[in-house]
């Protein structure tokens, strides 16, 4: 049970275990609450489901905004972003961590959000393509470089490519074309925009000071 949510449905009494060592998370059907800011994105409450163990409350940040919400323990971060928070920039291309279309940053690192249990986001911070730059602000240098080098076609893998590319530069893995190719190989582009992607990252790495 999370400290933030002393829920009446706490089932940790079922297990005679030391609460200092384990947090049995779960319970409490509160839908989604976006805490700490007035305007919310159109968050869809998770469905009213009777089984209490199927709802667990988590607190995390998305694009700098604190969020408290109820999730199905089985839900991936990707599905929570897309289906409950209407952050549809991250895409589902395989749902098994094999394509990179779902790439977001968690605590500053790129991950496959489809293989990240949402439950594991407690206390963590996610950054998605929507949060890379302010909605009305200028583009991130990586976004601009993707346009300049036409590093995209259908655009479906593009948010994942860009989130991976930004991480690639931040990690210091953009020092040569060969290194970029290797460190961008977790993001499949079926349209085959790889040449443009590599050129864009080389370009943006300079702007980003990478």
């Amino acid at each position: 049970m999370s400290e933030h949510d002393p829920s009446p449905h706490d089932r940790s009494h079922d297990l005679s275990i030391n609460r200092r060592d384990v947090m049995l998370v779960g319970v409490a059907m509160t839908g989604v609450t976006l805490v700490g800011f007035g305007e919310t994105t159109a968050a869809t409450p998770s469905a009213p489901v009777a089984r209490p163990e199927m709802n667990l409350t988590i607190h995390f940040q998305v694009n700098g905004r604190p969020i408290e919400m109820s999730v199905d323990p089985r839900a991936s971060l990707l599905d929570v972003l897309r289906e409950q928070l209407d952050l549809t920039g991250a895409k589902k291309g395989c749902d098994h961590g094999q394509c990179g279309a779902c790439t977001v940053h968690v605590d500053g690192r790129r991950v496959a959000s489809c293989l990240t249990l949402a439950a594991k986001m407690e206390g963590r911070a996610a950054l998605t393509i929507e949060g890379l730059t302010p909605a009305d602000g200028p583009l991130h240098p990586m976004q601009q470089a993707f346009i300049d080098h036409d590093a995209l076609q259908c655009g479906y893998c593009t948010p994942g490519q860009i989130m991976a590319a930004v991480a690639c530069v931040q990690e210091g893995h953009a020092s040569s074309e060969a290194e970029i190719r290797e460190y961008m190989s977790g993001n499949i582009c079926r349209c085959g925009a790889y040449v443009g992607i590599v050129a864009a990252i080389r370009d943006a790495a300079v702007t980003m000071g990478g």
Partner: peptide, 22 residues
């Protein structure tokens, strides 16, 4: 996917506590 309970351990003893119970 089959439903499951999710617990978060903060110590090694905590893991064993959950494991022995569930």
């Amino acid at each position: 996917m089959r439903p499951f309970t999710y617990a978060r351990a903060t110590s090694i003893d905590g893991i064993h506590a959950v494991q022995s119970a569930t």
